[in-house]
Simulated scan of single mutants.
Amino acid sequence: MKIGVVTFPGSLDDVDAQRAVTIGGHQAVALWHGDHDLRGVDAIVLPGGFSYGDYLRCGAISRFSPVMAEVIAAAGRGMPVLGICNGFQILCESHLLPGALIRNDHRKFVCRDQRLRVENNRTPWTSAYAEGAEITIVLKNGEGGFVADEATLDRLEGEGQVVARYLGDNPNGSLRDIAGVTNAAGNVVGLMPHPEHAVEELTGAGTNGLGFFTSLVEQSFA
């Protein structure tokens, strides 16, 4: 598959995401925030970083980048979209995912290996994992606390839209220990931890993150 990785001004994990896509057996396609087309890709990754310096709110300016009009339209047609960290924030700001990400409750940046439980393995990005699988990948954020009103949280829980949950100490105050969610259709996933930093034995937390990139099957969503 051809998987587009979007670079915004301030993205810093775009190259890591491209490498993870390649290790996962796909062709990585570099997309720029100013692009007006998706160059025939089959799926999209919005990487981590500090797009537009996190001014206003994290992801709030990137949401209006030209490429996001194309991403929103493609997601509506069923194309798989994965937002990692800042990408998750952009997806929430774009209303492709419910809820919001706010400053960590302890007001400090956190960077550590983080244990997660995969709650939903029925998305294009998580099918390589067993439901309930416990994995360890890298977490690094200053504004990673997932919040939503109680009705939305109940809906996410009841409809299986919680993709991953923190295990052990909650690193950022996310409500109900939520680390990642999906939309109702299941094709759009946001994840605060960084699976692209856990795809090789040589570096990082091992290879527990690789499943997010090997899960995609060969089919066209364009």
Rank of each mutant, 00 (worst) to 15 (best):
G4S: 07
P9C: 10
D14L: 07
V21Y: 05
T22S: 14
G24V: 12
G25V: 08
V29S: 02
H36K: 15
L38Y: 10
L38S: 03
A43L: 10
V45D: 09
L46M: 08
P47D: 12
Y52P: 00
I61R: 00
S62Y: 03
E70V: 03
A73C: 03
P80E: 11
L82G: 01
G83E: 15
G87A: 12
R103G: 03
N104I: 01
V110H: 08
V118Y: 03
V118C: 11
N121F: 05
R122A: 13
R122F: 05
W125D: 01
E131H: 07
E131N: 11
G132K: 00
A133R: 05
E134Y: 05
I135T: 12
L139R: 05
L139S: 09
K140H: 09
G144C: 02
G145I: 00
V147P: 00
L153Q: 10
D154Y: 03
G160N: 10
G160F: 07
Q161S: 07
A164E: 06
N170H: 10
P171K: 11
P171Q: 08
N172T: 00
G173T: 01
S174N: 10
L175M: 15
L175Y: 04
T182K: 05
N183A: 13
N183Q: 08
N183F: 07
V189I: 14
P195H: 12
H197Y: 12
V199N: 07
E200N: 04
G204A: 11
G206D: 09
G206Q: 02
T207R: 02
F213G: 00
F213Q: 09
S215E: 05
S220K: 13
F221I: 04
A222D: 10
